[in-house]
Nucleic acid binder design. Sequence first.
DNA 1: ACCTGAACACCGTTCAAGT
DNA 2: ACCTGAACACCGTTCAAGT
Lengths: 203, 203
Amino acid sequence: MQAAISILDNEGAAGLTFRALAGRLKTGSGAIYWHVADKDELLAAATDHVIAKFEPQDVGRLSPQEAIRALALGVFDAIDSHPWVGAQLSGNPFQYAVLRILEGLGTQVVALGIPEKGRFNAATALLSFMLGLAAQYAVASHHFRDGSDRTTALRAVAAKWMELDPEQHPFIHQVAPLLPVHDDREQFMAGIDLILAGIDTSR
Amino acid sequence: MQAAISILDNEGAAGLTFRALAGRLKTGSGAIYWHVADKDELLAAATDHVIAKFEPQDVGRLSPQEAIRALALGVFDAIDSHPWVGAQLSGNPFQYAVLRILEGLGTQVVALGIPEKGRFNAATALLSFMLGLAAQYAVASHHFRDGSDRTTALRAVAAKWMELDPEQHPFIHQVAPLLPVHDDREQFMAGIDLILAGIDTSR
DNA sequence: ACCTGAACACCGTTCAAGT
DNA sequence: ACCTGAACACCGTTCAAGT
């Protein structure tokens, strides 16, 4: 697991092959199949390893809203320090790491006093938002793997956006300059707060 | 494009290979590279084709909230009738199809009267939620490709959830029975409404 | 300008054979 | 019980050669 995560961190998702992992572990590529059914299971295990590490402790002391924010920050930080986790979470939403997140969110949704009928929708709305933004960060980080930093890479994307026909894309043009300067963590938490506010009105 | 979409619809994303597409078009696999840079571009083009087809017309007549709901329903229906679109949207959030959706959402967020600072977060929150739920439907549909229908497949997933330790997964246990009977479209729109309500309180 | 199709450099996965 | 590593059945992509 350590070796797999280290490869994923250093070479990205494409770098984790059975041959590469076997090489690092000084074993044959077939040996890995004794411990893991296939590549999906390998990636799911690595992802859960990371998500579990960033799960906040002692969430019980916090208000439900604060607990949900803490859970969200944990997911954000996990993705922030291991960019491949974003793609893996959204690419395989039935893996255990995602259930782990849903369980945490759901417990707090119950604590918020949402009636039984609304709990499923409220918890999965929070979860889906996280997975969706996770997917975006995943691609973003993929785009600036080659040395260039985040800002210059996003500036390149923004420049592409500005090339689109401004008549047909007024909003994209309006928002493109914000792309290179915006703060991912702030965006992530703003979305959470928006959904929390929406949940609050539904009580 | 027609041939690619037809393969994607019938065989899923894994079925679309350059060899398969070339075979269907009665040409060589290398020929496709004259028209498309690589597989990402091929998939992005197919995805935009579908998303554009399901974009609602005459959104101008509707209130901003109703317009956002109409846009969301279009995305939902696109995924519903072409399951591979869900994975493709969330797996590649910088492709043009996603910008198309963001432009539609953003225009309505502006119409809602959100101040400039909040527009980016509001529009991307709606977008991220859609992409995240799209990713979930993508995997779900993948799970019951082999003949079994949606309900029996989700029942199998729910049964797996019930095998988890109930002490550590109370919410998962509570919500598992809802999984096979819940309505995807209702869940999708409930999330949109939650975010819209949240946006409303932020005005 | 566009097509052909063999060739290249990979993959994940399997499995007879080992220890 | 666990490992070895060649072999299989694929991929996306390239490119000299054609029309």
